[in-house]
Amino acid sequence: MNEALSTRRLVRRLVFVVIGMFGFGFLLVPIYDVMCQAFGINGKTAGAYTGAQSADEARAVRVQFLATNAAGMQWQFGPQADQISVHPGATQEIRFVAYNPTDKPMTAQAIPSVSPSRAAAYFHKTECFCFTQQVLQPGERIEMPVRFIVDRDLPADVHHLTLAYTLFDITSRQPPVAVNATSAPAKESLQ
């Protein structure tokens, strides 16, 4: 019957729409990431910055550092200075210290966030321990550098910004390679 045929065709089309929208739900994930990085939404910072800028000596911006442990993380983790004053355009370095007080090797991942979030797009990291994962043997302690440039185009009404790290325990996801404790090399910096 003609009617049954057209119903079948309609239903097939609607099912395609359903499948398409299910896929669209997942497509929102990369779309969201792209939007966040393009506009600095939600304090998300981009990956390693390769450009260079000249320092704007006339202007000073206060950069504050925060370190937080995610739930269940036992490392001691903190910046070497609570805040520093920087000139936009100049490359600065700050070190964070992490110490594994447990008796197990552990892997950690630090997630950065910049506040106010509209300043995130103007905060460039040329080197950051958050680009990689950290593996600490029991009792091991490391200093981890962050090199960053505050963009010269930072909006004029932003006078200080905050770089916050949350440290997550991802040992179960990325089991650390067991290292013989006696021959553990002193780590100067992370690769």
């Binding site: 929208m21 299910f22 669209f24 739900g25 997942f26 929102l28």
Partner: peptide, 13 residues
């Protein structure tokens, strides 16, 4: 038809 699949997607995630 447009949004229930998105709900299904989010709970699947």
């Amino acid at each position: 038809i447009a949004v229930m699949p998105v709900l299904a997607g989010v709970v699947t995630m």
